[in-house]
Design a protein around this nucleic acid. Structure first.
Length: 704
DNA sequence: AGCACGCCGACT
DNA sequence: GTCGGCGTGCTC
């Protein structure tokens, strides 16, 4: 390896997966320069977007070259040479590099922290000297040949349903714009948003090189949508990308998309980070859904990143939802987004009647009001199906001692252990106490640990107890339950869903898992048992989520039956949210919420960032956040950032999880620019603070 | 984040 | 006498 000649050294700016800001300088040895077809006189642009192996401390790591320059950003004596260029595939496209860079800047994280996890695992490992490439080995030999551009006419299935007037209008609007536009398709459940997506894609894909991307909240819950795409574009290769795939499968689809063989990409949030050189349109279905938020590693919003890509690449994006996020609604009212609505069900089916039942003074039977019971009986008698929605899994939320008041608190978390019924041979051990936060699991004590009394009993009702009660109340009904406990067994959920479709289930009990997606044809009644937890939660987004959930659950009813009903049990029937819900009036609700948020100076009127810290030691957490607040105060003062407001550090709503004490510091600003300027300087300072507590910065937090 | 180095407690 | 606990510092 030759040493660089001072005057013509080229330095690669490399992203490495470490939580440090920016890119890292490595000089490019002449052997590598010539390998990528450059000499020291010309800028080696061919290396940009390639994966490289670089020395990192005393180890070797895979990185991605984001740029080349003759300018070093670091002390030149520390700069090491690139060890190896991995040339098993074409460079990652410029639009991808740009998006990753944007995400790193926006979320104030290392470029490599976003870039590397976005690649299939196989592309993140150092290739052994013998194997030429991992990626190409997996490609079928004739894959190059199948890359011939598909004719639009050949690739699209002929039969497609006629559009309703409003679908037609929406499609017309989509096709009438050019360049970057954010469209919002506001359509109630069953209004035929999918058909608009499909016909739009057909038009875009008429260009034989064009690619389109469809993002969905959870692939498993939207089989109809995925299937509809597959059926419509029968002869197109479709890349399906989600976390449930095996590494090999995911790499295979990813590569098909990256190489342009697959012109349609359908995927969950992670799909937004796929490098697509010819992306021409993006659709985000159920754009309000919180699954678009990554909750591990970098907490990015796939919806926001998709809009950023669309803007960078000057292409249109469509946000579809029955209940658009308030951020979206706000952008529509500001005319930053183009609005279109589908206000009727495409089938012409009527919307279900929503009845709000006051359960404040009613003595209920197994948690069910007389109205609910009557409706269930009536529906069963008519041979139709019932869905009961209870967002609380387990048997009872807590175990209680009637003698002394002891409750089954978890010793690792600030939460109660939940009483669960578990499959067991011995009846005596058929129950367990399980913490939903740290998953700790213990046997149920026979006597109260505090007073020794034997009057221990579950308090409250979860889905398991509800199932038991219903078996008692409706002995002849076929009852099934779907929640995460059921879903643990592979295929169990799918089996129950299938059985329900087949009409083999009369009453289906479920948590929020069930709220999305599935259309049960004979479903005529939805009962919502505990609507109240969202009404007065401390989180300001709780009503938005509740409304959207209830609207979605309601949408499950009456897709194919007339006279469908939704019964919502609440202790606060006069809450304005329910008034809007019974009228199916999202517009009214959203406008009212936006107004409230404006009065209270909350997003989307202001912007939030949250500094979260945790440690075994509660004091260390508070000390760190207090120090952080001082630093931020200083920064705001010296830079004259008057639009920024710093709150006091407070314990998180769940103050302790798995022995970790957690607290947070909220920062609010009317100016996004000032907020981000602060975050950039502040995170740099925070890295230098010595503390046993760990911290992370969250931009646009969903929950505060 | 890894991974080193470095200085203090209970074990063969 | 050492194994190993995790505090601290560094990585282009």
């Amino acid at each position: 390896m030759t040493n660089p000649n001072k005057s013509d050294v080229w330095i690669a700016k490399v992203a490495v997966d470490v939580p440090l800001p920016g890119l890292f300088d490595y000089w490019i040895p002449t052997e590598i320069l010539s390998a990528v077809g450059a000499n020291s006189a010309s800028k080696p642009v061919n290396i940009i977007g390639l994966r490289v192996v670089v020395p990192w401390g005393n180890q070797q790591r895979v990185g991605v070259v984001f740029d080349v320059s003759q300018q070093a950003d670091s002390e030149t004596s520390k700069i090491k040479p690139i060890s190896l260029v991995i040339s098993d595939m074409a460079p990652l496209c410029g639009s991808w590099l740009k998006l990753i860079q944007f995400a790193a800047d926006y979320y104030h994280r290392g470029v490599g922290e976003i870039a590397l996890p976005a690649l299939p695992k196989q592309l993140r490992v150092i290739p052994s000297p013998r194997q030429k490439t991992l990626a190409k080995r997996r490609l079928p030999a004739g894959s190059k040949a199948s890359k011939k551009p598909a004719s639009a006419l050949r690739s699209i299935k002929a039969s497609r349903p006629a559009l309703t007037a409003s679908q037609h209008q929406a499609l017309g609007q989509l096709l009438s714009t050019s360049g970057f536009v954010t469209h919002v398709l506001h359509g109630i459940t069953g209004s035929g948003k999918t058909e608009v997506y499909l016909q739009w894609f057909e038009q875009i894909l008429a260009d034989p090189l064009a690619q389109v991307m469809l993002l969905v909240p959870e692939i498993g819950l939207t089989p109809q949508l995925t299937q509809a795409v597959a059926e419509r574009f029968e002869s197109e290769e479709i890349a399906v990308l989600h976390s449930g795939l095996t590494d090999a499968k995911r790499a295979q689809y990813w590569l098909a998309a990256v190489e342009g063989r697959a012109r349609i990409v359908v995927g969950t949030r992670l799909a937004v980070l796929t490098p697509l050189a010819n992306l021409r349109a993006i659709v985000i279905d159920e754009e309000h859904d919180s699954s678009y938020r990554q909750t591990e590693g970098v907490h990015y919003s796939a919806r926001d990143l998709a809009i950023a890509t669309a803007s960078q690449q000057n292409i249109p994006i469509l946000l579809g939802s029955a209940t658009p996020a308030l951020e979206t609604w706000h952008a529509v009212s500001r005319q930053r987004y183009q609005y279109m609505a589908l206000r009727e069900r495409a089938t012409g089916a009527a919307l279900p009647t929503i009845q709000i039942v006051n359960v404040r003074h009613e003595s209920m039977k197994h948690g069910l009001s007389s109205v609910a019971l009557k409706n269930i009986a009536k529906t069963l008698a008519a041979g139709q199906q019932v869905l009961i929605y209870l967002n609380r899994r387990g048997y009872s939320p807590v175990l209680h001692c009637a003698a002394c008041g002891w409750l089954s608190a978890c010793d690792a978390c600030s939460a109660y252990r939940v009483l669960h019924r578990v499959p067991s041979a011995r009846p005596s051990s058929a129950y367990r106490l399980i913490c939903h936060h740290c998953a700790s699991d213990q046997t149920v004590p026979k006597r109260c640990p505090d007073c020794g009394a034997v009057d221990l009993a579950g308090m409250g009702r979860g889905t398991q107890k509800l199932e038991e009660s219903l078996l008692e109340l409706f002995a002849n009904a076929r009852i099934a339950r779907i929640d995460r406990d059921v879903g643990r067994k592979a295929g169990a959920t799918a089996k129950i869903i299938a059985a329900t479709h087949e009409g083999e289930v009369d009453i289906l009990i479920g948590t929020q898992m069930l709220a999305k997606g599935h259309d049960f044809q004979r479903l005529a009644l939805v009962v919502v048992l505990d609507a109240d937890q969202g009404l007065f939660a401390s989180d300001f987004r709780a009503p938005e989520r509740l409304f959207s959930n209830l609207m979605q659950v309601s949408g499950r009813a009456g897709r194919a039956v007339s006279d469908a009903r939704v019964v919502v049990q609440t202790r606060y029937p006069d809450h304005p949210l329910f008034d809007a819900l019974t009228r199916h009036d999202y517009d009214y609700f959203a406008n009212q919420q936006l107004h409230e948020r404006e009065q209270a100076e909350l997003p989307p009127w202001v912007f939030h960032a949250l500094l979260k810290a945790q440690s075994k030691n509660a004091q260390a957490v508070i000390d760190l956040l207090t120090k952080a607040r001082e630093l931020a105060t200083q920064l705001c003062e010296t830079n004259g950032w008057a639009a920024i407001r710093l709150y006091q550090p407070v314990p998180m709503p769940m103050a302790k999880v798995a022995h970790q004490e957690r607290a947070q510091l909220l920062i609010e600003s009317g100016s996004r620019k000032q907020l981000h300027q602060l975050l950039a300087l502040w995170s740099e300072q925070l890295r230098a603070v010595k503390s046993p507590a760990r911290w992370q910065l969250e931009v646009d937090p969903l929950e505060i």
